Simulated assay, not measured.
Amino acid sequence: MVAVSANRLELLQIAEAVAREKTIDRSIVIAAMEDAIAKAARSRYGQETDIHADINPKTGELRLARHLLVVDEVDNFATEINLDGARRHNPAAQVGDTIADTLPPFDFGRIAAQSAKQVIVQKVREAERDRQYDEYKDRIGEVSNGLVKRVEYGNVVVDLGRGEAILRRDELLPREVVKTGDRVRAYIYDVRREPRGPQIFLSRTHPQFMSKLFAQEV
């Protein structure tokens, strides 16, 4: 029992740590973990099996179940169950219902665990991108301060604290030179959702930049 409790606690601790680090909702991390565990379970029970994992967000208890469709005649034992079998789980079951068949805990194994980790990383990355886009799309038209992270072919990558932005060389002031580590103030003129993540575009030449700066100083 002690080992089970430790595992439950560990699941919640991981979810808390990732959510805090990535500034995303804890429920998103738990959902990603559930997807990852279900994927790992399918590697054991069969890829076509409809497996659902459920982590109790308060206790960390993990429930694993295989969902089976109730049918008159079974064609696929991985996804279907006949009415007699279904009624052993639920006496009120009818054809067309779905039965949740509880599965026992199991050791993921190295390959399944690696696969699960990849799912979690991908889901968290997607959530982080969504959070960043949602935050900065509403800040178009603002002047923001940032730190120059690097300069690539004259284009400046700026760390805004909760996201990276691009200050292209044609958006710099004439003959302006910036170096890694410099602090810059620039105007957010566009935010785009792209496959590699949200792209935040800055300008120091935009017509609104000077007027915004002036308004801040007054």
Rank of each mutant, 00 (worst) to 15 (best):
A78Y: 08
Y153V: 02
R125Q: 12
V124H: 10
E128H: 02
E142D: 13
Q13T: 01
I37N: 11
T79A: 10
A38P: 00
V4W: 15
L172N: 04
E171Q: 00
A215D: 10
D50R: 07
D134V: 13
I166G: 00
T79S: 12
H52E: 15
R169Q: 11
V70F: 07
N90Y: 04
K137L: 07
A93E: 04
I140A: 01
D101T: 09
G85I: 08
R169K: 12
D25R: 06
E48Q: 14
Y153N: 13
L103I: 00
Q94V: 10
E61I: 07
E135R: 13
I140Q: 11
S5I: 05
I24Q: 15
Q132L: 09
A86T: 08
V18E: 11
K123P: 04
E152P: 00
R139T: 06
Q132W: 05
Y133E: 02
D130W: 13
L103S: 07
T79P: 10
E194R: 01
A17T: 11
R44F: 04
E128Q: 11
S5M: 09
E164L: 03
V157W: 05
A41H: 12
A86R: 02
P91T: 06
D35K: 10
G181S: 00
E142G: 03
V95D: 13
H67G: 14
G161L: 02
E73D: 10
V119P: 08
A38V: 02
V184Q: 11
N76A: 07
G161R: 08
I37L: 08
A86S: 00
P105G: 12
E152Q: 06
G163C: 07
N82E: 02
E194I: 09
A186S: 08
D97V: 14
Y133D: 06
I14L: 13
A215K: 11
D107V: 03
P207F: 06
E135F: 04
E126V: 00
A3L: 10
D170W: 01
A112M: 13
I166P: 07
E21L: 07
R131I: 02
K117L: 05
Q122P: 05
S5T: 14
R87E: 04
Q199Y: 07
S27Y: 15
Q13L: 11
T98A: 03
D50T: 06
R196L: 10
D138M: 05
G60M: 03
L83H: 05
I140R: 15
P57S: 01
P174S: 04
D130R: 14
V18H: 08
V74M: 06
D97P: 09
K123C: 09
D84H: 15
R20C: 12
A186P: 14
T79N: 01
Y187P: 01
G60Y: 13
H89Q: 12
I28L: 14
R88G: 11
A31Y: 01
D72R: 05
K117Y: 13
P57Q: 08
P198Y: 15
A215V: 08
D134F: 11
N56Y: 06
E34A: 15
V158E: 07
L11F: 06
T59K: 09
K39M: 02
A65R: 06
I200E: 08
V191S: 05
G197Q: 08
G161I: 09
R42L: 15
Y45D: 01
Y136V: 00
D130N: 15
Q47Y: 13
L12T: 05
F77Q: 15
